[in-house]
Design a protein around this nucleic acid. Structure first.
Length: 570
DNA sequence: GCCGTTTTCGGCCCGACTGTTTTCAGTCG
C-alpha cells in the first residue's frame, strides 16, 4: 500500500513550494490532495488501475499524472527538480514556532542554514541578528521557539489536556467578570491527543477577563495578549489559548474555535454558495447583516442542516449527513450501563473487589466486569485456579450486598503466540465474561498477529478482544494487523472488539471503530481500570465511540445486564 | 493546481497579534 508514500511526497512538495514563495493556492491544492488521499480507506492504486473511473477529490488531471509517477517511481519530475535546489533540512526550520517559510528561506539564502541544529548555532553565535527584519525580539522568539520544539515534540494525551483545562475552568468560572466559559478545539472534539488547549470566555469586560486568565498561578509565560485573544504556556509546558467574546457571538466563536479546520472550511464554502459569509463573529448575508451567531445550533439551522456534535466535525461526511437529516443518534455517557474491563488487587490493580464495585455503582452502572489477568501473565500476578476460587467467592459475597448492581466474574486472558487462550476449557466456562488480550509477542508479522486474533475470535469462550492493536501512546505504535480479516472474524463469531478508554490506549481508534461498525462488529468500551479513579475514563471511550459515529445499538455497554447475558457467547 | 445549478476563467476561508515597519508582512490558528 503506497498511500503513505503519496501523501508524504505531496506534502513535502507543498512545503517546498511554500519555501519558493509559490502561488498559495497551488500550494493548498497539493495539501488538499494529500489530505484527501489520507482520508481514503482503500489502497490508492485501486484508483489508478486501467478502466477505473473512481475519482479522488482535489486530484485533477495534473496531480493524477504526478501521483501515477509517484506510484511507479516513488517521485515525480518537478519534485526532484525542486529538491535539488533546497536541502530537505530547510523544511524542518518551519517547524520551529515563529519561523515560517519566509524566514526559513531568508536563513538558508543569507546564512546557508539548512537544519534546526544550524539555526541553533546561528542564534548562539549571533550571526542571525544582522539580517533584515530580524531584531532582538524576533531572535528571542525564535530561541524560545527552539526550546518549545525540543520540549513539546509530542502532543498531549487527552487526560493531561482535560486536567489542564479543568484547572483553568475551575479557577475562572466563579469570577463575576466571566459570564460563561467553555472548552473548544480538538479537546472538545475528543481527539485522542491534542496540541494545545483552547478556552472560550464570555465577558463584558474583555481586558479584565484576559488579565485574570494570564495572571493565574499556573501560567508560566504569556506568549500573546490582546483584548480578544491571549496565549500562555503553563507551568507544565502546555499551551493554552484564550478567546474572549461578547455573549451574542458565543456560538459563532465556539463553532470556529472547535474546528476542525476542514469542517470549518467546508461550512464556509457552503455559506459562500448561498451568498453568505461565516467568520468567528457569525453568519452574515451579502449586505453584512448578521443571520446567526448566538448559538452553534442557530448557525447550522440557517445553513439548512441539523446540529453536528463536536466529535463528528472532521469533514468525514457529517456535513452531507446533517444536510439530509441523516446524522446518527450518537451514544452518550448516560447510555452506558457497565464497564467491561477493570482489575483488582488480585492481579495488578490497586483496589479491592468491593472498592471497585462501590465506585462503579456510584457511577450509576448495573454491572462491572472484574477482568483480572490470567495465569500465564506472571508479571501482573495472573490468577491460578486456587486464587480464582477465592476471587469468585469474594464477588459472590459482595453481590449479596447490592441491589440492581452486579459484579461479574471475568478475566482478561492471554492470547498466546498461536492464538490459544491460556486457561483450560473447564475454567473458561466458569466465567461470566472473557476478554482475550495480547500482551506478548508484538513483534510477530502482521499475518501472524492477524491469525492470532482471528483464532481468539473463533474461541467459543471469548466475548471481547481487548485493545486490538496494542497501541500504547506515545511509546508503542499500533501493530499492523489486517483489519478486514479481524473485522470479518469478529462479526462472524459475534465477538466484540474493545474500545479501550484508557487514555494512553484509545484502541481501536476512531477511524477503525467506524470501519468495524460497517462490518457489523459490535464494540465494547472498557476502561482497563487499575484503580477506582480510572473508572472515570469511560468518558474518553465514549468520546472515541462518538467520533466513530457509534449509536447506543453499536455499543455493548448500553445493554442492561439481563440482555447482555443473553447476548454473550456462554 | 482545482473547480463549476450564476463561472472553462477567476475565484480559492477568515481574522488577530507581533514586530518592525511609517502602512504592512509574517506567523498562527
Amino acid at each position: 500500500m503506497k498511500n503513505d508514500l503519496v501523501i508524504s511526497v505531496l506534502r513535502s512538495m507543498a512545503d517546498f513550494l511554500e519555501l519558493m514563495d509559490e502561488n498559495p493556492f497551488r500550494i493548498r491544492a497539493y495539501r488538499t490532495a494529500a489530505d484527501n488521499v489520507a482520508a481514503l480507506e482503500e489502497d490508492i492504486e485501486e484508483y489508478f488501475q486501467e478502466g477505473v473511473k473512481k475519482k479522488i477529490p482535489g486530484v485533477g488531471k495534473d496531480l493524477a499524472g504526478k501521483i501515477r509517477d509517484i506510484l511507479s517511481t516513488g517521485t515525480f519530475k518537478e519534485y526532484d527538480q525542486i529538491r535539488r535546489g533546497v536541502p530537505a533540512g530547510v523544511l524542518d526550520l518551519v517547524r520551529v514556532p515563529s519561523v515560517g517559510p519566509k524566514k526559513a528561506k531568508l536563513f538558508y539564502e543569507k546564512l546557508d542554514i539548512a537544519s534546526v541544529e544550524g539555526l541553533k548555532k546561528a542564534i548562539a553565535d549571533k550571526r542571525i541578528s544582522g539580517l533584515p527584519g530580524i531584531k532582538a525580539k524576533t531572535v528571542e522568539n525564535i530561541r524560545r521557539g527552539l526550546e518549545l520544539l525540543e520540549k513539546g515534540k509530542e502532543r498531549l494525551d487527552i487526560l493531561t489536556a482535560t486536567s489542564v483545562a479543568n484547572k483553568f475552568i475551575s479557577a475562572l468560572k466563579k469570577r463575576k467578570e466571566i459570564a460563561e466559559i467553555a472548552v473548544a478545539g480538538s479537546l472538545r472534539r475528543m481527539k485522542d491527543t491534542v496540541r494545545d488547549v483552547d478556552i472560550l470566555i464570555v465577558s463584558e469586560q474583555p481586558k479584565k477577563a484576559s488579565r485574570l486568565f494570564t495572571g493565574l498561578p499556573q501560567v508560566r509565560r504569556v506568549v500573546a495578549e490582546g483584548p480578544t485573544r491571549s496565549s500562555v504556556i503553563t507551568t507544565d509546558d502546555v499551551q493554552v489559548d484564550l478567546r474572549v467574546i461578547p455573549k451574542d457571538e458565543f456560538g459563532a466563536a465556539l463553532l470556529y474555535f472547535t474546528g476542525s479546520k476542514a469542517h470549518n472550511i467546508k461550512l464556509r464554502q457552503l455559506a459562500i454558495k448561498k451568498g453568505w459569509k461565516i467568520s468567528e463573529y457569525g453568519l452574515f448575508d451579502k449586505q453584512g447583516r448578521r443571520l446567526a451567531s448566538r448559538a452553534e445550533e442557530d448557525i447550522y439551522r440557517k445553513l439548512g442542516m441539523d446540529f453536528i456534535a463536536p466529535e463528528l466535525r472532521e469533514d468525514s461526511g457529517e456535513i452531507e449527513a446533517a444536510s439530509k437529516g441523516a446524522l446518527p443518534g450518537l451514544v452518550s455517557l448516560k447510555n452506558i450501563l457497565g464497564d467491561f474491563h477493570a482489575h483488582t488487587n488480585y492481579s495488578d490493580g490497586k483496589n479491592s473487589v468491593l472498592e471497585m464495585a462501590q465506585k462503579a455503582r456510584s457511577l450509576g452502572y448495573e454491572y462491572l466486569c472484574l477482568t483480572d489477568h490470567s495465569v500465564s501473565l506472571k508479571v501482573a500476578h495472573g490468577l491460578d485456579e486456587a486464587r480464582l476460587k477465592r476471587k469468585k467467592k469474594e464477588i459472590q459475597d459482595a453481590n449479596r450486598g447490592f441491589k440492581g448492581f452486579s459484579v461479574l466474574f471475568a478475566t482478561e486472558a492471554e492470547i498466546d503466540a498461536e492464538g490459544r487462550i491460556d486457561y483450560p476449557e473447564k475454567i473458561l466456562s466458569q466465567f461470566d465474561l472473557v476478554i482475550g488480550a495480547i500482551h506478548s509477542g508484538f513483534k510477530q508479522t502482521s499475518q501472524q498477529l492477524t491469525r492470532r486474533i482471528v483464532r481468539a475470535c473463533r474461541n467459543r469462550h471469548v466475548d471481547i478482544i481487548a485493545h486490538p492493536t496494542g497501541k500504547l501512546w506515545p511509546t508503542r505504535a499500533p501493530y499492523d494487523i489486517d483489519f478486514e480479516e479481524v473485522f470479518k472474524a469478529a462479526a462472524d463469531t459475534g465477538t466484540a472488539l474493545e474500545i479501550s478508554a484508557y487514555p494512553n490506549r484509545l484502541d481501536l481508534s476512531d477511524v477503525n471503530a467506524r470501519r468495524a461498525k460497517e462490518y457489523g462488529v459490535r464494540l465494547a468500551i472498557g476502561t482497563d481500570s487499575h484503580d477506582i479513579s480510572h473508572l472515570d475514563y469511560m468518558a474518553f471511550g465514549v468520546g472515541l465511540a462518538r467520533r466513530a459515529w457509534l449509536t447506543p445499538k453499536d455499543v455493548l455497554n448500553t445493554l442492561p445486564l439481563k440482555e447482555l447475558q443473553k447476548q454473550l457467547k456462554r
